[in-house]
Design a protein around this nucleic acid. Structure first.
Lengths: 254, 254
DNA sequence: AGCGTCGTTGCACTCTCTGCAACATCCATT
DNA sequence: AATGGATGTTGCAGAGAGTGCAACGACGCT
């Protein structure tokens, strides 16, 4: 909608791939060097872009700080965190909290496993949307139309033999997840890692977030992990209750 | 330098404080609502801003993803990580990696303590620049002029009784740190937490990053923590060596 | 119904961004 | 040393893009 801003913002993903010099930026934007220079300068003033000692540009510190602040202001996260910690203390496995936004699903909180073998993931990182248990829950709650449209648009990388292969299979899986109210990922992303997940709902009953417990085969089998399901659902329900305003901490004087 | 982009980018820190609606954004920018709308639209298209169900705007998912990618592309981080993990395995405490950029010092990697009592910090978060051990190392290496200028500009919040009180004290501390080649923070940020830090240097000898080991008093005393100093320095030196190209992994055929 | 608030659109004006060309710097080459 | 070629930087005039206005539409509230 706004050409100048559009161009400026296009620089960010470009730099995310790695540092680039003025010429490269100008070329990839399709603008004159002087134009690129001014855009970069403005980005620089705002700290979104950093000029390293070899004069090349890369993404700047403020970007981290912004992402950080934004994350801390997510109230679901705030509310959920202590519950996640408690669940982690009880079972010892990695616990994740994820939300859906703009065709992506991303982790917004994580409590690490207390076992030495940990799975790789990072808060802020988009998840494998076609296989992750949390993604299934978040997408299963979308209105039918959106769900279909999104499923068609997605790509279905075969991380493992158990990965969701295509849109049809994905939609069927979502339907199932929708009905049962919980989801799993049994080696669909990494051969040896299983997850169980449950939805967190707002006051209107819509799914606002999802949480999961993940553990590698070497620590517990898929069946053993599934025995945690009731506990995971209870935790998710507790968070839902608190988030939607019902019974945060019942005041006895009320 | 570029008015439009400047305005658009000013929206981001504003939204970082919390969600805002169109009117609020327009007012705080000092522009017409229609202008703010178009800027927000552009930010939205790039995923930097998200429109939540109550129509208010907040920071968007792509911001996290960008910060994420940027972080993963930092080569120091890549090189240092395994060393940090190894140090953590050896001593059990929280290990941090930090860099200096644009008058801020921020953590770019962290390996959590294996003790139940952990300190609060997050990757991407700016550190308390006047007291953190890593900050002292990074700033101590600045050329004299810059160091003085920066020290004067900073604020010196008294987190605890041991916090650096003013520019003079800070500059003296930096001088000391510069000479001894390592730094500590003994309860300067949080009463009960101590840190020991060592610098990581590039091929030209300049400090490019700093790493620290932190632990609360309840786990180890400051004196006990100090006994780890040689180990921390050795780790930092190993990272320095690898980063500056010397002996990444000595090839016996060479 | 009627009012007030908030987001949205079309349009004319003008301000700001753009591209150009010239200049400055630096490094590699002869 | 001097030359050539990169690369980053500045001033300027033209024009295209962004701006604010005013009017409209959509809600929610009394």
């Amino acid at each position: 909608m706004s050409q100048t801003v559009d161009r400026a913002l296009s620089i960010l993903p470009l730099l995310a791939e790695g540092p680039a010099d003025l010429g490269q930026v100008a070329e990839r934007l399709g603008v004159h060097k002087s134009t690129a220079l001014r855009l970069l300068r403005t980005l620089h003033e705002h700290g979104l872009v950093y000029r390293q000692s070899d004069q090349r540009y890369r993404l700047g510190a403020r970007l981290f700080a912004l992402a950080q602040e934004a994350m801390e202001n997510l109230d679901i996260r705030e509310i959920a965190h202590p519950h996640l910690v408690r669940l982690n203390e009880a079972c010892g496995h990695t616990v994740h909290l994820a939300v859906h936004e703009e065709n992506e699903v991303l982790y917004i909180d994580k409590v690490d496993s207390r076992y030495p073998v940990r799975m790789y993931s990072r808060v802020g990182k988009p998840v494998a949307i076609t296989v992750a248990a949390v993604a299934k829950l978040l997408l299963a709650d979308l209105p039918e139309g959106e769900r279909r449209a999104l499923a068609e648009k997605l790509e279905y990388p075969l991380y493992t033999a158990r990965s969701t292969p295509n849109a049809g299979a994905f939609l069927r899986e979502l339907e199932k997840v929708r009905e049962q109210g919980w989801a799993t990922d049994l080696g669909g992303h990494e051969e040896s890692i299983n997850c169980v997940a449950a939805p967190i709902r707002g006051a209107d009953g819509r799914v606002v977030a999802a949480m999961s417990v993940s553990a590698p085969n070497v620590v517990v089998t898929a069946d053993e992990l599934l025995t945690l399901l009731p506990r995971v659902r209870r935790t998710a329900d507790a968070i839902s209750g608190e988030y939607s305003g019902r019974t945060p901490v019942k005041d006895p004087t009320a």
